[in-house]
Each structure stands twice: as C-alpha cells, then as structure tokens.
Simulated assay, not measured.
Amino acid sequence: MLDALGTGTGIELSLLALVGLLLVFGSRRIPAWVNWMLDRFASPPVKEFYQKVVGPHQELGWVVAILGLVELLALLIPEKRGQAFVEVPVSLGLTITASWFVSRLFKQFFEFYILEAVIKSGRKSNSEFLILMQLLANVGIVIIAIVLFAQTHRINIVGLIASLGIGGLSVAFAAQKTLEQLLGGIVLYLDRPFVVDDYIGLPDGVFGRVESIGLRSTKIRTSGKGTLVIVPNSSLTQLTIENYTGGKKVMALVYLNFYQVIAIADRALVQQIIIDSTDDIFGIDTQNTIVTFKDFTDALGQARSQAQVTFFILGSEEVSMTLRRQLLDIANQTITEKLKSYGITFDIEEPTIYVDAPITI
C-alpha cells in the first residue's frame, strides 16, 4: 500500500514537473503563435480588438492560464492526500488574478470603445455617469468572482453574508458618524462640486482654497488669515457651496462705429437698446454690460462717435460658451435693426473680440 501511495505521488509530481516545463517553454512561443493565428485567420476588427484590449495585458492572461492548469492538476490529487491544502490557495489565487485580468480588460474596452464612441458622437456626455458605470462594472466583477469561489468550494455565502450583516450593523451603530463622513467623501468624488486648488465659499462665511479632499474630511486654507479649516464631508454634502474657481466669464468687446457724433441725450437710448437686446439671452450678464462712448475724427476729417460695448458671457463649459457666443452674434443683428429704426446708422467692427476673464476672487 505504501508502495502504491509512493508511486501515485511520484506520478503526480512528475505530471506537475512536466506541465511546469511545458509552461516555461510554451510561454516563449505562445505569444508568437497567437499573433500568427491572428494574422492568418482573424478578421481586421478581431485583430484590432485583441491588440487594443487584450494585448497590453497578455502577460497577466498567461498567469491566469498557468494558475488554471495548476488548479486542474490540484483537482486530480485525491482528497486523502491533502487536495484541499493545495487546491484552495491555488483556487483563491486564480480567482483574484482572473478578476484583476477581467477588470483590466474592461478598462481597456471602456477607454478604446465606449469613450471613443461618446467622443465621436459629438453629444454632451455626463462624466459622472461614465465614472459610475466603470465603478459598477468593477464591483460586479468582484461579486461574481466571490460567488463563483463560494459555490465551487461549498461555502454558505448566504449564511456568511447574514452573519457579516449582523456584525456590520453593530459596527455601523458604533461608527455612525465615521460612516456618514466616508459616504460623504464618495458623494463628493462622484458629484465633484469642487476639486483641489479651487476657491470655494460656505454659508457660514468660510472662504478659501481647497488643500485636500480626504475620505472623511476636506481641508480648506482660508484666505486672509491663512488658517486651516477641516470640514467633515458629510456636512459638505448638505451645504450650498459657491465655487469661485469653477465660475468662468468671457468678455466680449464689440465696437460700434457711428457715422455721426452721438449726442449725450441719445447715448442713453443707445445704451438701453443694447442692454434690452441681450436681456433675454441666458448667460449674458446684462447687469454688468458696459457701454462707453468716445468721439474721434476719421481720415476724411469727419467727426464721428464710437461705442465700445463690453458684454460678460458666463459659463463653465466650452459647449455652452460656444452657444452663447452664437446668441450674441444674433443679438448684434437685433441691436443693428433697432438702432437703425431710430435713424442711427453705424458699422460693427469684425470680428468680435473675446477675452477670457476669470471671476475676480
């Protein structure tokens, strides 16, 4: 019986050694074989998919294949000879490595196909939704890996979750404030009302630069005093935050060259027409619209007036800024028509000058 046991063990060790040698020598040839098969049999889309998604992580995939073969060999060991002692660690390593490999493949697929499709569509995308989708995909991969490992090793995952749930409730009651702050940090990460180095203001009068955003709290360096204010993230999710850095405005300079000198009494009329023509355009700060007049003499010696109109276009995204610039061009046409109805003729210098002007802090 001992001879039979020794013979069986020797055969298993020989098989393990043989497989190990095949894996070592095969690892040098298999990538070349895969590339040859792709060049010979695969269509261009399949080959492109492999190069973009699988290619950067093919070494990790080879590790998963090695662990898979070792797992199969471990299952051949009889239970009386310590199958669980060998198989469980190998299976756990295979589960973790395979999960990481699938997560990396999804990341490559997400970057090269999903994001590329969103950009090519030309439509406005919700970055927070894309981040959340990637996070949910990774969480789903982990959950599937845990369930598969539990099912293949006869682990009562329902009972384990129930026991962990009871213990989790006790921990949650004991660390309720800490959990609220951690959840607040997750909300700030997904919503992103501000980032590091942004200047923000809080309802209680705190104003300063965001130094860091942690899991539990956010540190704000106050302007003027230079003190450090530490605010729990759970509180920030319930406050009205004014982000000064996030605000953006563009000064649009429009020059109106009149054919005659505009009297002082008519200048107020011109200014009112200009303001009324842009009052219904969302994003144009008409309260800060500035109209200044100056008189000059042209090359022919004729006295004329020029009006410099300064519009402030508010916005935080390039798409909205482009749209509001187009609306401002329409407003210029409205201004021209209304002033001509009063018998005031002029030319608008082209092009309109746009100057980026961050909101003054």
Results as ranks from 00 to 15, higher is better:
residue 4 A to E: 11
residue 6 G to Y: 12
residue 6 G to K: 06
residue 16 L to A: 13
residue 16 L to T: 06
residue 19 V to C: 03
residue 21 L to Q: 02
residue 22 L to M: 10
residue 26 G to W: 04
residue 27 S to N: 14
residue 28 R to I: 11
residue 34 V to N: 10
residue 38 L to I: 09
residue 38 L to G: 00
residue 41 F to G: 01
residue 43 S to E: 04
residue 50 Y to L: 07
residue 53 V to T: 10
residue 56 P to K: 09
residue 56 P to M: 04
residue 60 L to M: 11
residue 60 L to T: 13
residue 60 L to K: 03
residue 68 G to Y: 00
residue 68 G to L: 02
residue 69 L to K: 06
residue 77 I to R: 11
residue 77 I to D: 03
residue 79 E to W: 01
residue 81 R to L: 09
residue 83 Q to I: 00
residue 86 V to Q: 11
residue 86 V to S: 09
residue 89 P to W: 06
residue 90 V to H: 01
residue 90 V to M: 04
residue 90 V to S: 03
residue 115 L to A: 04
residue 118 V to H: 15
residue 118 V to Y: 12
residue 125 S to F: 10
residue 126 N to D: 08
residue 130 L to E: 05
residue 134 Q to W: 10
residue 135 L to V: 08
residue 135 L to M: 09
residue 138 N to H: 14
residue 138 N to P: 02
residue 147 V to Y: 15
residue 147 V to D: 12
residue 151 Q to W: 13
residue 151 Q to C: 05
residue 152 T to F: 07
residue 155 I to R: 10
residue 156 N to I: 00
residue 158 V to C: 07
residue 158 V to G: 10
residue 161 I to R: 15
residue 162 A to N: 00
residue 169 L to T: 12
residue 181 Q to C: 15
residue 185 G to E: 07
residue 187 V to W: 08
residue 189 Y to T: 04
residue 189 Y to I: 08
residue 190 L to M: 04
residue 193 P to V: 02
residue 199 Y to R: 14
residue 205 G to T: 11
residue 215 L to N: 14
residue 216 R to K: 12
residue 226 G to A: 08
residue 230 I to S: 14
residue 233 N to I: 01
residue 234 S to R: 10
residue 236 L to C: 08
residue 239 L to T: 14
residue 256 L to N: 05
residue 257 N to W: 02
residue 260 Q to D: 13
residue 261 V to L: 06
residue 262 I to G: 02
residue 263 A to H: 03
residue 266 D to H: 09
residue 271 Q to S: 10
residue 273 I to E: 06
residue 275 I to M: 07
residue 278 T to M: 09
residue 280 D to H: 08
residue 281 I to Y: 06
residue 284 I to V: 10
residue 290 I to Y: 13
residue 290 I to A: 13
residue 295 D to R: 01
residue 297 T to V: 11
residue 299 A to P: 02
residue 300 L to M: 03
residue 300 L to T: 00
residue 311 F to P: 00
residue 315 G to D: 06
residue 318 E to V: 07
residue 320 S to L: 10
residue 325 R to M: 12
residue 327 L to Y: 15
residue 329 D to M: 03
residue 330 I to P: 00
residue 330 I to K: 12
residue 333 Q to M: 10
residue 334 T to N: 15
residue 346 F to R: 12
residue 346 F to I: 15
residue 347 D to K: 02
residue 347 D to R: 01
residue 355 V to E: 07
residue 355 V to P: 00
residue 361 I to G: 06
